Simulated scan of single mutants.
Amino acid sequence: MLTSIRPGEQKFGEKVSYLNPEDDLEEQLLASEAKYVLLGLSEDIGVQGNHGIPGTRYAWEVAIKAILNVQHNSMIKASKVLVLGHLDFTKAYAQLEGHSGDAFVAQCRKLTEAIDKDVTDIIRKIVASGKKPIVIGGGHNNAYGILKGTSLATGSKINALNIDAHTDLRKRESRHSGNGFSWALSEGFLNKYFIFGLHENYTSKKLFAKMSKEPRIAFNTFEELFVRKDKGVDFEVNESISFVKGGKFGIEVDMDAIAYMPSSARTPSGLSLEMVRHMVFQASRSKNAAYLHICEAAPDIQNPKEMALTGKAMAYLISDFIRK
């Protein structure tokens, strides 16, 4: 039992709805009156395919425990949420056994393609039922499947607001956590793309030049906002949302954008959690906000305090997305 029951209180886990695994998924999605569907992706295969630090497979585990134990009240209505559960990639991990070095990375990239298909299929079903997915866990490779599934369900290209220290626009030589948006753009699932808080230290001159020539891509940098202070933060928040809200758009939160957050690329210099919470809340107010994707959180499973802290951070972001 993940929900801690207390007399005189109503926890989130007591009021959300759940699916019956024995019944048809699509029929239950259509029948549910919930507005949001909570889905976990327990994998870090895409991250390792990008030579990243593993651990994102544990994000769902800590997030679901944290969100089920927040209070159900007039501002955060748990009755609007359906808990779908998580995709289990145990069989995929079995296929990594015996691999090392370059062969291990190559196998991770191959398996990421299979993960793409699973993510695309489940997101398509959720969106086709008229609901908004809230996707937790895994690497940023899953942005591709989420964008594709949403695009297929709506019959239109999807915009994306990505709160991230990195562009994830690496070359499309194969599939991994660094090129989800590259593939989504090239295959016509992603239309307008805004990166908020990009770190100049980790973005190449060539990539800056490429983005400047692409009208579908816009960005601001962390240094513009908080080091040189060339731009007003409130203005830039509104500009980033305005860039994408003309069509259906996804809100992407890479946890490595947040200072000191346990993630696959932890940073001592980044956005505050309060800043990201504000952005998620503001963007969710738009009628065209189609989903929330929180990825790259990688808590140390040997550190209970870090696990709890990371889960609580994600629970805040989830509640801000549905907050009244």
Rank of each mutant, 00 (worst) to 15 (best):
N220Y: 03
I146R: 02
L225G: 10
V244Y: 02
H199Y: 05
E252T: 04
L152N: 12
D256T: 08
L161M: 14
F219C: 02
H166V: 04
K229I: 05
H166Q: 06
S212I: 05
S156R: 11
G250F: 06
K210T: 14
D168C: 12
N141W: 03
A218P: 00
N142D: 14
G178H: 04
D168M: 09
S204M: 04
E252N: 10
S186L: 09
E223A: 13
T203L: 07
S182W: 09
A143G: 15
K229C: 04
R175M: 11
H140F: 05
A143M: 05
S177W: 06
A257C: 15
A143Y: 10
A209S: 14
N159K: 03
F226W: 12
S240K: 02
E200G: 02
G197A: 10
N162H: 14
K205W: 10
Y193K: 03
H166S: 04
K157A: 15
L147H: 05
V233K: 05
I251N: 05
A165F: 05
I195L: 07
T167K: 04
L198G: 11
K192V: 01
H166C: 08
G247F: 07
R175V: 12
V237G: 00
N179E: 06
N162Q: 10
H199K: 12
A160R: 00
E200W: 03
D254H: 04
S242V: 02
V244I: 09
A257S: 15
Y144H: 09
G145I: 08
E187N: 13
T167C: 15
G178M: 10
F249Y: 06
I251Y: 03
F208R: 05
H176S: 07
R175Y: 14
A218S: 14
K206G: 11
K205M: 11
W183L: 14
K157N: 03
F235G: 01
D254G: 11
H166L: 06
E187M: 09
F222C: 01
H199A: 12
L198Q: 06
L198P: 07
G188E: 06
N142R: 07
F222W: 02
N142G: 13
D256V: 06
F226T: 08
F194Y: 15
K148W: 05
I158H: 03
V253A: 12
E200M: 08
D164G: 11
L198H: 08
L169P: 02
E223M: 09
K148E: 13
G178I: 08
N179F: 10
R175G: 12
A165D: 06
K229D: 03
I195S: 09
F219G: 02
A218R: 13
F235D: 13
G178V: 12
N179Y: 08
F189Q: 05
M211I: 12
D256K: 03
S174R: 11
V244N: 01
T221Y: 03
G149A: 13
E239Y: 09
